[in-house]
């Protein structure tokens, strides 16, 4: 089939060349390509430019930054880093640890339980299955902010304010992860394998944990990354729930930088704080970008 198409393509290309003189086609195509590359490179630079400035300024002293613009990094990177992590008003080390704990727990809970729910719908036949599937699909795009008021007052009533429970546990119900998982299962989880496991005497729970989960690994990994990043970047809910400064997550601390008297701040430190908030994700991204981009085009759904 593929060969046939290739042959077709070849012949059509030949026909085109016959109708258009060779000389005419080639230069326009080359010019077109050059324009494409120029535009693409421009937008790539645009994407990277601000992060480059971040890198440059995170490595310069306050005095250098204030005295002018530079395209070359300075030598104060380690100094800035040390003064940033020893800042007592914004305990950035706590922030990183808190964000890591919350984001990791969120990622694990959301992929495990959402995969489990998708598995329930994919494998079993029970009353209300269709309704639940359609319902989850329907609520997938409704933002969590609309119930934030009730969420906030409930957490206050239950004494969950200033704890991580309201930031971690709700991840168990992640409609977007559920949807991605069920799509993946449809394409690559044959029911026969589960039936074979049953015949071999494996319990339902064991089948899911030891046979199904390993088969879902690629999808789980992609969704774990997305859940982790979404939680790491989340600002709205944590800023309402968390009050104690040592319990705050990275985004809240970044917001504090903004509300602090900005002009009096050591700018080298400000850039270093932003650097610390952004860089872990960028490093993970560049290591795993192939999976992530494949995941984006596959899922089509990301919050």
């Amino acid at each position: 089939m593929a060969k046939k198409e290739k042959v077709l393509e070849h012949t059509s290309a030949l026909q085109l060349n016959r109708t258009d003189p060779n000389m005419k086609v080639k230069p326009t195509l080359i010019i077109h390509r050059i324009i494409c590359y120029i535009v693409l490179v421009f937008f790539s630079i645009l994407c990277l430019f601000f992060f480059y400035i971040l890198l440059v300024n995170a490595s310069r002293s306050h005095y250098d930054i204030m005295s002018g613009f530079s395209f070359l990094p300075g030598n104060q990177f380690i100094n800035n880093f040390q003064s940033a992590i020893s800042n007592t008003t914004i305990p950035v080390v706590n922030g990183v640890i808190n964000s890591l704990i919350i984001a990791t727990c969120t990622a694990i809970l959301s992929i495990y339980f959402s995969a489990m729910t998708a598995y329930a719908i994919h494998v079993y036949d029970f009353k209300g299955k269709k309704f639940i599937f359609n319902f989850i699909l329907l609520i997938m795009t409704i933002p969590t902010q609309v119930s934030a008021l009730g969420f906030f007052s409930m957490c206050t009533d239950l004494g969950l304010r200033d704890t991580y429970i309201p930031l971690i546990v709700p991840a168990i119900a992640a409609p977007a992860v559920f949807f991605f998982m069920i799509q993946y299962m449809k394409s690559s989880l044959p029911i026969d394998i589960i039936e074979a496991a049953r015949i071999d005497g494996s319990g339902e729970f064991r089948t899911f944990n030891t046979i199904v989960l390993p088969m879902l690994k690629p999808a789980l990994a992609v969704q774990a990354i997305f859940s982790f990043v979404a939680s790491w970047n989340n600002y709205f809910l944590p800023s309402l729930i968390i009050d104690t400064s040592t319990k705050k997550t990275m985004p809240i601390m970044i917001a504090q930088l903004r509300s602090a008297d900005f002009l009096k701040f050591d700018m080298g430190q400000v850039y270093m704080f932003i650097f610390i908030a952004i860089v872990p994700v960028i490093i993970v991204y560049f290591c795993l970008s192939k999976f992530i981009i494949a995941g984006v085009s596959l899922g089509g759904v990301k919050e």
């Binding site: 937008f43 790539s44 994407c47 990277l48 601000f50 992060f51 400035i53 971040l54 300024n57 990043v229 790491w232 970047n233 600002y235 990275m250 985004p251 970044i254 917001a255 930088l257 903004r258 700018m267 400000v270 850039y271 932003i274 908030a277 952004i278 994700v281 960028i282 991204y285 560049f286 970008s289 992530i292 981009i293 984006v296």
Partner: peptide
Amino acid sequence: TVMYMPNLIMASAFAMLIFSI
């Protein structure tokens, strides 16, 4: 890869960066 990267950046940190710049 480069063009998708800003999507994963912490929006609040990006806004703070733009504010500083």
